[in-house]
Every structure is written in structure tokens, then in C-alpha cells.
């Protein structure tokens, strides 16, 4: 029942200011340069923050902001513009559509929802990339799926902590 309590009390009182700060921090963390295998398996922190947003305050989800964040990520990564936006938007839509059910689980159980959703959305994005004429980049395209999902419980509790301490002060 912990999940339910979190969903109804803490998260819905998440202030916009705090959300902006969290998003900026997440974007910065995504920008931190890494090399080698660390770069290839790095989790997408921004995606997890957007997931948290979608699950915990679905009424406040702003598609334009998510779209813009995707564009910024694409430009920062030098990748084809629009692919990350597409990924984030479809993913947050799934999060909003299923948030009532997902919120009933603890973060570990939520991973069972997040993993297939993220995998399918990535697959969809890859299909669109194929259609616009990009060649298959190799299986490393899917590595971040696992690492991102594994990061979810930790990130979830960090944001919960931030939200509750922000509300207390």
C-alpha cells in the first residue's frame, strides 16, 4: 500500500518549481560526458523523471515541455531531431494512461510495467527511424533500456525524498 500513499499524498502536491528544478538537474545529468561502455549503457535520467511526472501528477503533464526536452536532447546528442521527442511523448502517454494501475505497485513491481513499455516504445521509434531511411545501429540501441529500468527504484525514491523535504520546508 506504500505506493498508493505516495501517489495520493506526496506526489500530487509536487510543486511546479520543484519539477522544473528536477527536470533541469536530470537534463544536466544526461549531458555529463562519459566514455566507452559507460556511455553505451548509461540510463536516461530525464526519461525516468518524465515517467515519474506522468505517473504521479498526470493532470500536470505538459506535452509541449516534453516535446521540447526531446528536441534539446536530440540536438545535444547530435542525433536525428524528433526521435527522442517521439520516444518521450509516447512513453509519457502510456504512463498517464496506466498511472492508476501502476501506482498500486512498489517501484520494484513497477519495473515490470516500465521495461516492456520502454522496450516497445524504443522499438517503435526504431521502426520510424528505419522508415525515414536510417540504418540499424546495432543492438547497442537497446542497451539503455535495461539500465534505465534498473535505475527506476533508486530515482523514484530520490525524487520522493526531494518532494517530501521540499513540502516540509
Amino acid at each position: 500500500m506504500i505506493g498508493k500513499i505516495q501517489g495520493n499524498t506526496i506526489a500530487e502536491s509536487m510543486s511546479t518549481k520543484l519539477l522544473i528544478v528536477i527536470i533541469i538537474v536530470a537534463f544536466l545529468m544526461n549531458l555529463i560526458p562519459l566514455t566507452g561502455w559507460a556511455q553505451r549503457v548509461r540510463p536516461d535520467i530525464l526519461l525516468l523523471v518524465i515517467l515519474y511526472w506522468g505517473i504521479n501528477s498526470p493532470q500536470k503533464v505538459n506535452f509541449f515541455v516534453i516535446f521540447a526536452l526531446g528536441i534539446l536532447s536530440d540536438v545535444a546528442n547530435g542525433s536525428i531531431i524528433g526521435q527522442t521527442s517521439l520516444l518521450y511523448l509516447v512513453f509519457v502517454f502510456i504512463a498517464v494512461a496506466t498511472h492508476r494501475r501502476v501506482r498500486l505497485f512498489k517501484p520494484i513491481g513497477q519495473m515490470l510495467y516500465v521495461f516492456p513499455a520502454l522496450f516497445l516504445v524504443k522499438l517503435g521509434t526504431l521502426t520510424v527511424l528505419f522508415l525515414v531511411g536510417v540504418k540499424f545501429p546495432g543492438w547497442s540501441y537497446f542497451y539503455p533500456v535495461a539500465s534505465t529500468v534498473l535505475f527506476w527504484p533508486l530515482l523514484n525514491s530520490i525524487i520522493n525524498l526531494a518532494v517530501s523535504s521540499f513540502n516540509r520546508s
Partner: peptide
């Protein structure tokens, strides 16, 4: 409907950028 609009927009951006 918003999602559909944005998806269409993203795909057209991707197409424009790739081609």
C-alpha cells in the same frame, strides 16, 4: 489528440532531418 498531433510533428521533423 494532442499526442497524435505531436507524433505526426515528430515524425515529420525526423523525416526532414534525415533526408
Amino acid at each position: 489528440s494532442k499526442l497524435l498531433f505531436y507524433i505526426a510533428f515528430c515524425i515529420s521533423l525526423m523525416y526532414t532531418d534525415a533526408r
